[in-house]
Nucleic acid binder design. Structure first.
Length: 691
DNA sequence: AGTTAACTCATTTTT
DNA sequence: TGAGTTAACT
């Protein structure tokens, strides 16, 4: 029985609900896809089906939240539908926004060659506009500005609506920030949603054009959409509403970033013809794990009734560890995984994960794992594109694309160092301001001769020449010279490797950074080669340019080195969404940690909302586990600097483990079950091979 | 420009 | 408590 189910799960045969979701090809469709219920499979099959009934690939769009998800979807679709599948537009909401703005931003006064500021670029600019040295204050402003923008407010409207001096100050910072963005022809992440929305609202012809172009839209992780994204979506699908939204209200964990379950609530009202299809068969986890998950989430109010059923069947009971403190917890965790390993020698560390609420909780685990020589990797951390060397290169690319990007200019002109200091830049800045010109266009101005030494002027001219070389070289190279050859030549020209050698703290660091730069070039070159097939009409000519224009939207370079590596994963619950492991330990399931300080939230309603989202976080954590799940909590927790007594999270009680836990299966028994499970897996694998 | 000393802030972070 | 960042000094 189990073997049959596993075989079924692994093959690409759809179950009844999945088939229903795939065949619902006209009008609005909501697929409520529980954890592990095969939603990516459904999306890929649905795209294949749409192509099959004759919809051109270029008229289908599949929208995701992460580039990783988009890449995964593309791979799955390509497998199913071949080259046609690869031509479907699969991108993030933000990348879609970029396309809309590049094509039609003119209507808003935005040229096609705008720069995209990532979160840290934007923060730096905001800080400058507010003339503050406090990072915390700047971050608060950024948060306020982000909220206002997402609500579609202008700086003036924000100022009018401001209630206190703090808000008024933030609104004034926003006004300056917006002016600078316009001057620099730059947009931030929020603009990538807010501006396309404004565009489509204000220009019906543009909206109509895109509605005609995008005949069918699929949205993944629909529960994570914000109000703005929903509005954009509504304008794009129009009244006919040929779309599929795939999501799970129980896995909505990004409320603090503007995601709202209202979008799920409103869907049946806004689209009366909505078909709602539930995927409730879970192909990932054993019964005890899903029972725990179902029990926990049952404590939340229901938006859509849904219960996960395991296709895998019986398994080991969920285990709970009470620990004294974080160190003890780490020691227990280590012992637990070592025992698993002893019981099951073939266990790979890559099959194991420790999940927790906040990043700092990783530390204790890292310590014990390092001591025990167990390989591990911590998910998250500084993303590839946040690294200085990559941001340096990106500054040059931004400047190449957009000559008005002064922040990029300032970064590029000082990396590598070329004897241009604050004095020279101040003179340049003053002149640029007087002439209302971008910094790049004042380099050659004769007026500089009076203020600066010949040496400084020569340095400026040399920089200008290098930027021109990048431009001209890129134009000539387009389509002829492979992108990486061109990029390497250019890096040599600006002497970037020497710059790294001169600025790094050690030779090893310089080497590591240089290899990151080379990886980055390789990555861009690879993107150039397949830009054409990613639903891009004007492929060929300007591809390196296009890649350069969108690098800000990417945070990771993809998993390459991890392939051969067998390491245990340490991850936050947020970062674990969408992933799965055979063996999972949920750590720090302590009241006050998960749920995290519910008493901090304002009134009762806010507190309830907080606990509900934390409960969904717990639910996400539980449903990451395939075979075994363990939970640990500590009798102490840190508040500020002090340790205070703590108790088990309310979520542990809600899991209703008593029956399973107290009659915990004897070790021998558990061993047998695990053995049986493994045999079933092997059987299923054999069955697939022989097929 | 580089180094040290003080200061700040601590939840999650797809783009 | 401790890391990470900034500011000031050399």
């Amino acid at each position: 029985m189990c073997g049959a189910f596993l075989f079924f799960a692994m093959s690409d045969v759809l179950n009844i609900a999945q088939r229903e979701a795939v065949e619902c090809l006209r009008g609005p469709c909501l697929v409520l896809a529980g954890a592990g219920s095969g939603k990516t499979r459904v999306i890929a099959h649905k795209i294949a089906r749409l192509l099959e009934i004759g919809l051109p690939a270029t008229r289908i769009a599949a929208i995701t939240f992460t580039n990783k998800a988009a890449a995964e979807m593309r791979a799955r679709t390509r497998t199913l539908a071949g080259a046609q599948g690869a031509k479907v537009m699969m991108c993030t909401f933000h990348a879609l926004g970029v396309r809309l703005l590049r094509a039609d931003g003119q209507a808003l006064g935005l040229g096609a060659r705008f720069s995209i500021l990532d979160a840290s670029d934007a923060l730096a600019l905001i800080r400058e506009c507010g003339a503050t040295s406090s990072a915390a204050l700047a971050r608060r402003w950024q948060f306020s500005i982000s909220r206002w923008k997402s609500a579609g407010l202008t700086a003036q409207q924000a100022l009018d609506a401001a209630n206190d001096t703090d808000e008024r100050r933030a609104a004034r910072v926003m006004a300056r920030y917006q002016e600078r963005l316009v001057a620099y022809q730059s947009v931030d992440f929020d603009d990538l949603i807010a501006l396309p929305l404004r565009l489509l609202r204000a220009h019906d012809d543009v909206a109509q054009k895109w509605r005609d172009r995008l005949a069918y839209i699929l949205v993944d992780e629909y529960q994570d959409t914000s109000a703005t994204q929903y509005e954009l979506l509504r304008l794009l699908v129009g009244n006919a509403g040929h779309f599929t939204a795939v999501g799970d209200d129980d896995q909505s964990i990004y409320g603090w970033r503007g995601a709202t379950l209202d979008n799920l609530r409103r869907l049946p009202e806004d689209f009366p013809g909505l078909r709602v299809i539930r995927l409730e068969t879970n192909y990932r986890s054993t019964e005890p794990i899903l029972r725990a998950a179902n029990h926990v989430i049952a404590a939340n109010p229901k938006l859509y009734e849904k219960t996960l059923r395991s296709a895998i069947g019986a398994g080991e009971a969920v285990r709970v560890f009470a620990c004294l403190d974080e160190r003890h917890e780490a020691a227990q965790a280590l012992r637990y995984f070592q025992q698993l390993h002893a019981r099951w020698p073939q266990l790979r560390w890559g099959d194991c994960a420790i999940l927790y609420r906040a990043n700092h909780q990783a530390k204790a685990f890292e310590q014990v794992l390092r001591q025990a020589h167990i390989p591990y990797r911590v998910s998250g951390g500084t993303s590839f594109f946040e690294r200085t060397e990559i941001k340096d290169i990106c500054a040059w690319l931004r400047l190449w694309v957009n000559e008005r990007d002064d922040p990029a200019f300032l970064r590029a002109i000082t990396t590598p160092k070329r004897g241009i200091g604050t004095h020279t830049l101040a003179a340049l800045g003053a002149l640029a301001e007087r002439l209302h010109l971008p910094l790049l266009n004042t380099l050659e101005h004769t007026a500089l001769a009076t203020a600066l030494s010949q040496r400084a002027i020569d340095a400026l001219h040399e920089f200008g020449r290098q930027v021109d070389a990048l431009r001209a070289g890129a134009a000539r190279a387009a389509g002829k010279v492979p992108a990486h050859v061109f990029l390497h030549a250019w890096l040599r020209d600006i002497g970037y490797e020497q710059h790294l050698a001169a600025t790094a703290e050690s030779a090893a660091q310089a080497q590591a950074r240089w290899s990151n730069v080379l990886d980055f070039c390789e990555w861009m070159a690879a993107r150039c080669e397949n830009t054409a097939e990613n639903g891009n009409e004007n492929g060929g000519q300007a591809t390196l340019l296009e890649v350069a224009q969108t690098v800000s939207l990417i945070s990771t370079l993809g998993e390459r080195q991890q392939e051969g590596e067998d390491a245990l994963t340490l991850s936050t619950l947020h970062a674990a969404k969408g992933l799965e492991w055979p063996h999972v330990l949920l750590a720090g399931v302590t009241e006050g940690v998960l749920p995290l300080r519910p008493e901090d939230a304002g009134d009762t309603a806010a507190r309830d909302a907080r606990v509900q989202e934390e409960r969904r976080l717990m639910y996400v954590g539980i449903t990451r586990a395939q075979r075994t799940l363990a939970i640990s909590w500590t009798r102490q927790r840190k508040v500020a600097r002090a340790l205070v007594p703590a108790r088990a999270s309310r979520f542990i009680a809600e899991m209703a483990l008593h029956a399973q836990e107290n009659t915990a299966t004897a070790p021998g028994d558990a061993k047998k079950r695990l053995q049986a499970l493994r045999e079933q897996l092997a059987q299923a694998a054999r069955a697939m091979q022989s097929k």
